[in-house]
Design a protein around this nucleic acid. Structure first.
Lengths: 256, 256
DNA sequence: CGAGATTTTTCATTCAGTGAAAAGAAATAT
DNA sequence: ATATTTCTTTTCACTGAATGAAAAATCTCG
């Protein structure tokens, strides 16, 4: 239609896979779709999508507005809340993040590692502006940004090796793409207990980040970011470390 | 097994419905299940669930840990973020809630109406304690609690009628279950622009709540709650109203 | 009003999904 | 250690649920 993107004809056969493809058609950019558009993206015949969508709607997984446009249903949101990443991390982390935000009044982020990416699980900001790059659920590279590097630095050596061997994309002039330089930085992070990053991913952004360790194993990372670079984030480090270790201890408590 | 609950044998036939039943088997109480348990709850043959679960896992909708226990997958959480209730409400509301929390340091809640219930979309608290009744995603009655009554008060008359005619459950001595009394309270709420509630749902909890109006139509409600009752919440009302109207205006801006 | 696009319904065909049962693993009791 | 129970995985012959092309109904907009 408006873009020339060719969506892959869905060759998978199972009904379930098709239904999931329908759900998977929605994106941040297009969170609401018409039937035909939905079918096009999912790579399925319209009639098929029509039937599947009706069932998904029946189950509350899809919503349909008066105009007939589909969007993901509340049920999906409710299920997301039952996910460990929410129920067992974000829920518990929230008070710590909130207090940290209260103390330093900067943007506070919580991130976890998922595969070779980091995902933002929570972001607290009192500003109304919305930097899309750091929206909740966004995936960011492990080798740039404070939280990413922290998550990587505390990972098992074997995993670090794997990432170091990858072709690391460059985002800015300061992105660490060189294996030796990155390895050295990771070691420094572990040595001092937190990471610093200055426009390695996004121009004009500065961040500090600390690991959330549960019984010595990295579970998440808390970061403080500033997009104006006028503030000196180092003054926030004590509060940051306090929040990170506090959360780690709390998680140990709960899991014991 | 440990409880005598008889799960309904799933008579629905469609594959999709079965797959959704598998996902629907997870609850806050049991966010992680074994295969057989999962099959029992979903009301489906084990072999069937085994197959479906494998596909759902393939798609990232389910996770399976080393022990073989299933839990809902990250994909589900990510999809929940694309839901309007998150992407188009909680995301935008967050700065307002955060500033409100900063100003009054009480528990701040954001709720929407869904059917004849209210649902908590967000809850900010700096306390580590977790009152389960108000967890995000929890459903609460419209006729008790501040946010519930606010959502109801600003609903169309026709809808209010429907709710008033329902058999309204009593939770505490102070719950308004009487039609006349509730109607009067709703009118008062609209007259003064915000709601007050004192242990109408949960003993020892006090709350104030204000409507988030978008072009005059109720969209959500912001509430402040206190479980210790020592504080006088009235001092927070100005900040509360400021947040609620601020959010309403912001939403109007975005939707225009 | 009519041409183009979108949504909904229908229906004959067939292939994907089914689940009982058997085999294999684990956990638990004796 | 061995038996017993419970849970997980694989197999396979059968069948009815899912399919999608095409027709019908509906909407959209110049």
């Amino acid at each position: 239609m408006n873009n020339a993107v060719v969506y892959p004809k869905n060759t998978s056969k199972s009904v379930t896979a098709r239904a999931l493809a329908v759900l998977g058609a929605f994106t941040v950019a297009e969170p609401s779709l018409t039937l035909s558009h939905l079918a096009r993206i999912a790579g399925l015949p319209i009639a098929t999508v029509f039937r599947l969508a009706a069932e998904l709607e029946e189950g509350g997984f899809l919503d349909r507005d008066d105009a007939g446009r589909y969007s993901l249903g509340v049920k999906l949101w409710e299920m997301g809340l039952l996910t460990p990443v929410h129920g067992h991390l974000r829920e518990i982390a929230m008070p710590f993040l909130l207090n940290l935000q209260y103390d330093c009044r900067e943007i506070v982020q919580l991130a976890v590692r998922d595969g070779v990416d980091a995902i933002y699980v929570e972001k607290l900001t009192s500003e109304e502006s919305v930097p899309v790059q750091s929206r909740i659920g966004a995936r960011i590279p492990l080798h740039a940004t404070g939280v990413g590097k922290t998550l990587l630095a505390y990972s098992p050596e074997s995993f670090i090796e794997v990432v170091l061997e990858m072709q690391l994309p460059r985002y800015t002039e300061d992105t660490l793409t060189n294996k030796r330089a990155l390895a050295k930085d990771l070691a420094a992070i572990k040595a001092q207990g937190f990471a610093r990053s200055h426009q390695e991913y996004l121009m004009g952004s500065t961040s500090v980040a600390a690991p959330v360790l549960v019984n010595g194993v990295i579970r998440a990372s808390i970061g403080i970011v500033n997009y104006t670079a006028r503030e000196d984030l180092d003054t926030c480090v004590p509060a940051l470390l306090h929040a990170a270790t506090g959360l780690g201890k709390r998680l140990e408590e709960i899991e014991s």
